[in-house]
Every structure is written in C-alpha cells, then in structure tokens.
Design a binder for these strands. Sequence first.
DNA 1: AAAAATATTTAAGTAAGCTTAAAAAAATAT
DNA 2: ATATTTTTTTAAGCTTACTTAAATATTTTT
Lengths: 219, 219
Amino acid sequence: MSVAIENFVKAIYKNNSNDVKNTKPGNIAKLLGISNAAATDMAKNLANKNLLNYEKYKALELTKAGEKLALNVIRKHRLWEAFLHKTFDMSLHEIHREAEFLEHETSNFLANKISTYLGNPKFDPHGDPIPNANGEITTIDTSISLSNTKEGKNYTISRLMSDDKEFFDFCGLNGLKYGNTVLVTKQFSKNKMTQISINNNTILLNEDFTNIIYVNEIK
Amino acid sequence: MSVAIENFVKAIYKNNSNDVKNTKPGNIAKLLGISNAAATDMAKNLANKNLLNYEKYKALELTKAGEKLALNVIRKHRLWEAFLHKTFDMSLHEIHREAEFLEHETSNFLANKISTYLGNPKFDPHGDPIPNANGEITTIDTSISLSNTKEGKNYTISRLMSDDKEFFDFCGLNGLKYGNTVLVTKQFSKNKMTQISINNNTILLNEDFTNIIYVNEIK
DNA sequence: AAAAATATTTAAGTAAGCTTAAAAAAATAT
DNA sequence: ATATTTTTTTAAGCTTACTTAAATATTTTT
C-alpha cells in the first residue's frame, strides 16, 4: 500500500481512539493537511480496496482489513520510536519525526527483529501501546489525565499524548517522562491549572498540557 | 527529492563505477526496470533540476549536485546495511533488501547518528565504501577479483560485489565473508574456474562468482 | 420550519512517473 | 558506403494523489 493510503487509514484509526470521534472525510482531510475533495476521493478509492466502508455524507468506518493495515503501520511507528530512543538516545520529538517516514518502508521481517531485540515491549517511549504482529493492541487504559488528579496524591506518568516539539522539549527539561513519579500539590480548578512537584521542583501546568499528560495513581 | 529521482541518480553513479560504463538513458532504464521513454523523460526532468547534463543521444553525466545526491543516498544505504548486519545479525541479502527502502526515508541527522554509533566505518559488510557526510568516498581500490589471483597465495576478502540472494547464500554457507582469508589452490584458466581453500574446506568457483569477489594479497 | 452556515461531493484540471507505439537518429554489419 | 539493426526520442495516454471552484446535502441557528 502507498504512503498516502497508509497515512489515511492511520488517521482514521487514531481519530477513532480520540474522545471526540469525527471520521467524516473533512476531518480526516484536516488531520492530513489535504483538501476535503481529496479525502472524499481517497475514501472511495479505499472502499474499492475493501479497507473501509463508505456511504455518502456518513462517517468513514475501517473494515477489519483497514484496521489491520492501520495497526501494522502504528506498530512499525512505535517500534521505531522505542528503538531509536533506546539506541541513539534521541528525544521524543526526534523519534516521532523519524518514525513518521520509516514506518512506511519497514518490512514485517525487520519490524519483528526490532521487537525481539527490544524484548517485545508493549509501550513506546510516549507510553503509547505497540500493537503486536497479529494486530492486537492493549486498549484498556486505566490512566487519567493530570487535569483529573487529586491534590496530595502521587502518580506515575503513563502517557504523553502529543506530537508537538515544544511540549516534548518542556517535558524533557522538567523530568516529565514515561514512568516517572509526580506529586499533585494543588488543583486550581477555576483557572484550569495544576501544580505538581517532580524531582524537588514545583511546576505549574495549564490545561493544554495537563489534558495530554496521562498518569496512574500510586496507592 | 523523490524516490524515483534518488534511484535514478544512484543508478547513473553506480554505473559509472563499473568497468563497462554506459550511462545512456536506455541502459539506466534497463537497470531500473523502466521503459526507455521514461528514462529519457526523467533525464530531461533532472537536467532541469541541474542534477545532470543532458544532450540528445549522448550519455548522461551527473553534475556536482547530482553526484552529491547519489552519494548521500549511497551513504544511507550502506550505513543501514552496516547497522542492520551488526545489530540484528541479518544476512547480506536481507540488509540490502531492507536498505533499498530505508535509504530514501532517513534524515541526515539519523544517518550521522548511525555512523557515529558504528564508529564512522569506511566500509559496509559487502566491503563497499561508505561516503562520509561531505560526500567524500574512498575510491582507490587496490583489490583484485579472485579471477586474477595466483596459485599458492593467500588473500583477504575485501568486497562482494553483488545484489544476488543466491550468491550471498552461497557465501554465507562457505565462510566467504568480508575480512576472511582464502588460499588460492588452483587456477583452471582454460575453464575459467578457481579452486580455493577456506576454513579447511576446498571449493571450486566458476567465473560468475570469481569475477565479483574482490581480494587483497597477504604478503 | 425555514434560513443561514457549514460540510461534502462532484467536476475539471494539474504534476509526477510511468506505459506503448511510432518516428528519428546512431551504431553495426555487410 | 549502404543497408540493417539497435537505440533514443517523441507523442499520446494512463494512474495516483492531489488542487480549486461550483453544486449539493446536512447541520445549526433562529
């Protein structure tokens, strides 16, 4: 399958795991930076290839085959991220940028080699789950966003849901890393801000960031 | 630059390092498995982009920019080969197949990371020289093909010039590997065959193979 | 429920990278 | 030196993945 097709099914799949699902062509177009017309064209094309179900004016729905393709691309993306992070000590932003291209040009054979080499990890350095070779993925996610945490409790960081360089730079500088521990010291609910303590530093985060940082309570 | 363009300049560059140089569009077309017409089209296109000089019915000549692009792609290809061979213990054929795709989707940033990680090697596992980040390549090659060796002398294998799976499988089975030592026990010049001794085994090679195995005499 | 705003689809067109078939030039053989 | 063969180029056409503009359907607002 072409890069365009792989990115299209990937965008639909990822959109479906968002809170606000909108898999109509226009929204996928916005995510991919192409015109609505191009997305409609592509949707018809992929329906012909049995990768999705297309009905005029309706939301796009991946078929089993379409979902499998999307998961295979996501698997390669996240394996590359884990591998590059470990091997070359590249930042969360750098590994994402590189994996965005490598994911389309990696054989299943090599993906399996990478996975074995890493000990078949279930999560990448952002905390995102890595689908296995059969397209099975860990979807049960009991973690909550930092916005919904309680004052005085300790949490471990389980997921950094972003593609943004500035966010990752900020995280890198402040020790906000997959697996690390934070203490929520104050919730400013009116101003939608959260104060946390990490590595003996106190930092104040606004909603933009607390919404995409996921954590698990330490009991 | 697109994959098609990168492969085109790479094919011209590689053809120029062959014994029999023929960089007219038809020959490049044959190497790439495309039609002559497509190669002529592409040649005009690349001339517009200042990657090569094109004159009707004449051989194609890479410009400095074209050569630099070709060397950059070859650098990435050979770095990936070296890396995959070392890290995942993949065969010479497997690394070539994988690198053929990865070479086009690797940033200079990552290529440099790989190079540093490997200790900036000058040769890949086939013995082919790896261009450095400035596009400089070791071209002085004092090695000779096994066909031109002398009976009773010892040689180290310096290069396996092929893309062929069967050849690499044969090499793998018989210890014919970059850096290994062979003793030439007999040259059957009439039948164009060479008998060698390696790892206490005696094997007889025909011209097809001895022409693409390059060695250096041990004095 | 109708009007206004928004989203989707259709239509027409473009560029890249190919194809085949025919025409033209160059290389080779006699 | 000419005829034959081979190679290169031109011409016309195809597919993929886009674009913009216009038409049409849906959704939201009032």
